[in-house]
Amino acid sequence: MSSNRRGVGLSAFSNAAISSDQYARHGEQLRTSHADALENQRSVFQAALHNFSLTHAKDIRSNPTFRAEFARMCRAIGVDPLAGSNVKGAGGSSGSVWAKMLGSSVNDFYFELGVRVVEVCRQTRAENGGMIAFSEVKKRIESGGGLVGGGMDVTEDDIQRALDSLEPLGGMFKTTTLGSTKFIRSVPKELNPDQSTVLGVIQILGYVTVSMLQDNLSWEKARSIAVIDDLVADSLVWIDEQAEEVEFWSPASMHVAG
């Protein structure tokens, strides 16, 4: 209460009530005008974004740099290009605001990419035990991999987003970072810390031997062998018996020229 003079007598009570009422009404008025302004801004912005995505839908789909910028813009203003896009025609609400605004092309792009990522993971599972590097997925998707649709120009960022869009399906595709390489794990098995360490080492050198593990990690021989045996059993590494000491290689380096 900002009144300087303290009210005296009974009338002070009603005065206080009246002024607080006035404050409340004024506050309400301010709030609505504020909300109106925001609502106005939002619709203007929506319209702008809608126009933008319509004019540039083609670029968004075909140009990876442009798409990355677009996605960054969306992130900056707090909208998720994928959110709620799978509720098309659900009751009266008819899909997400986003899907209505952008048309479905942006969503479709990521769903399509998601399907390809899953395909690549499945195709290579026998070879790599369900662990595949982002770069490898990217390469395979770009080359088209014998698909009729041909290749798609994508970034690793896109692949990550596509994987996120698969999340509602149960999250069978997890990303893991080993060393400095990001991997997609498409087989639902957790790696124990020892296995992750060994795979990390393999990422750096391309291969590993039991004695390397003993020397560098000061592990017991039995421990090193046990970890590697597990990795072999999960088809995550390949054995090379023709080196001086048996070497264990990551199938990730299999399709790298050199």
Binding site: E127, G129, V232, W238, D240, E247, M254
Partner: peptide, 15 residues
């Protein structure tokens, strides 16, 4: 064919 383990038959059945 430049991948050394390719020349060792793998013990894991799937691989």
């Amino acid at each position: 064919t430049s991948f050394p383990p390719f020349y060792t038959l793998q013990p894991n059945v799937t691989t």
